[in-house]
Write a protein that binds this DNA or RNA. Structure first.
Lengths: 148, 148
DNA sequence: TATTGTTATACTCTATAACTATA
DNA sequence: TATAGTTATAGAGTATAACAATA
């Protein structure tokens, strides 16, 4: 229970997480059907839909990437007509972003199409208890991402 | 318990996993100290150390990337003198890879330096039960990566 | 012919630096 | 001066296509 005892143990967990998360991330990228949103596009659009109208920098903070990187992702979403940009009348440096109807529609249709494959793998190859374990793990992983 | 009941539920777990794994992967990339191995270099060298001498294509299959991508990673490791390449006398198309002493040494020294930060975050901000939960989740995540 | 590996090329994702406009 | 955002550039990570050598 002391720090000394816990350390080698926790290092092992850390290593195992790095390996498994690296693998999963690669698979997520590979499983993108043609014409679909890229990973960051999908992620940004989802955040925008859940979070409500926000600025590019706020989104960048949520996704933990640089504002410039988020800018590139948002420009791609705008080109495809999936997000709309409004100027904040109270501070004209700021841009306010919100999903268009097309963006919301795409989220409903296509995101499920993308996660369907993952959900299928879960449903067919994992027990109910294992799925519950993963459900509980997801917020822990997100917390961990914000802790490092 | 039926498939119909489970489906929307499992989709939700799938979405949560995608979000949290995306975030964590970005943080892993960002936390690379100067002069360290890149993520795929570290991963390939670790596999090589655990798995024993293998061929480039076998490593590519384990890491679930193309043989060409693995070739680029291995070339970088060779340039740094961390892996050694031998020709297979039984099949001269094949190359056999193994870590050098320097490669093994670096794994011991530096990989812990990299995971130390993650381990520190786990130890200081998560309860023992949460850490145990994550430990059990890691092999599930790896299995999931191989299922999709 | 099939397999192992290499070379060439390109796309995605992200970063840092330098800039403009507004506060 | 400080902040929001953009533009330019570069590096990491990966893919596909075309090739050479060996089986």
């Amino acid at each position: 229970m002391t720090t000394v005892d816990a350390q080698p143990d926790v290092q092992e967990v850390a290593g195992a997480l790095r390996t498994s998360i690296g693998l999963l991330h690669r698979r997520f990228r590979q499983s993108r059907p043609a014409g679909e949103l890229t990973l960051p596009e999908s992620s940004a659009l989802t955040r925008l839909d859940r979070h409500g109208p926000t600025t590019p920098s706020a989104l960048a903070r949520l996704e933990q990437i640089s504002p410039q990187s988020m800018g590139a992702t948002l420009a791609a979403l705008e080109r495809r007509g999936l997000v709309e940009r409004r100027s904040d009348p109270e501070d004209r440096r700021r841009a306010i972003l919100l999903p268009t109807d097309a963006g919301r529609q795409l989220l409903q249709d296509k995101r499920s199409a993308r996660t369907a494959q993952l959900a299928q793998a879960l449903a067919s190859e994992f027990t109910r208890a294992e799925i519950e374990h993963l459900r509980a793990a997801a917020p822990l992983l997100e917390r961990l991402a914000h802790s490092i």
